[in-house]
Computed example of a mutant assay.
Amino acid sequence: MQEVWAEELPVAQVRIARPTDKLLEVARFYCQGLGLGLRLLGGFESHSGYDGIMVGLPGFPYHLEFTQHEHGSPCPAPTKDNLLVLYIPDQQRINLIVARLESIGYPAVEPENPYWKAKGAITIEDPDGWRLVLMPARGIG
């Protein structure tokens, strides 16, 4: 297994960014509800009309960025198959995350693709309707 990016693509950091009209709710969902050590790593305000936050694991170069424009988001709602899949090796941890998210108003939803349910994964919608899949690591493949 390759442990670093290929020489032809020397990536130092990966950041997945998307807009939201619910910046505070999204921060609560990913940092408090999801947990897993995700932290608010930084943010900005009033940058050309945008506010934003970066969420991730301290010390790791993989981040989620959420931005909110002062005039709202021009983006359409996501489909039910726009997914962020997290492979988690501990079923008990998945159960705790699901319970914590449900306690703040985000219950599990039926996945669009039956593959996820057949593999024992749990699907939850974030405040914007984007779907998070908590997949048991034994289901990789």
Rank of each mutant, 00 (worst) to 15 (best):
M1W: 08
Q2T: 14
W5G: 15
A6H: 14
A6W: 06
E8D: 10
L9T: 13
P10R: 09
A12H: 12
Q13A: 15
V14P: 08
R15W: 03
I16G: 15
A17T: 11
A17N: 08
T20L: 08
D21L: 05
D21T: 12
V26R: 02
V26E: 04
R28M: 11
R28G: 11
Y30V: 11
Y30N: 05
Y30T: 06
G33Y: 08
L34A: 15
G35R: 10
L36E: 11
G37Q: 11
R39W: 00
R39Q: 15
R39H: 09
L40E: 14
G42C: 01
G42L: 02
F44K: 03
F44S: 06
E45P: 06
E45K: 12
E45Q: 12
S46F: 08
S46Y: 05
S48P: 00
S48Q: 12
G49L: 07
G49N: 03
Y50M: 10
D51R: 04
G52N: 12
M54T: 14
V55Y: 00
V55K: 01
V55H: 01
L57Q: 07
L57A: 05
P58D: 14
P58T: 04
G59V: 05
F60P: 07
Y62D: 10
Y62A: 14
L64D: 03
F66Y: 15
F66W: 11
T67W: 02
Q68G: 06
H69F: 14
H69C: 05
C75W: 01
P76T: 06
A77F: 06
A77H: 04
P78R: 02
D81T: 06
D81I: 00
L83Y: 08
L84R: 09
L86M: 13
I88Q: 02
Q92A: 15
L96P: 00
I97S: 11
I97R: 07
V98Y: 03
V98D: 04
R100Q: 10
L101S: 11
E102Q: 05
I104C: 01
I104K: 02
Y106K: 00
P107F: 03
E110V: 09
N113G: 01
P114H: 03
P114A: 07
K117Y: 08
A118F: 07
G120T: 10
G120S: 08
A121R: 10
I122T: 15
T123L: 06
I124L: 04
D126Q: 00
D126R: 00
P127F: 03
P127W: 01
W130Q: 12
L132N: 01
A137N: 13
A137Q: 14
A137V: 08
G139A: 15
G139F: 08
I140S: 07
I140A: 13
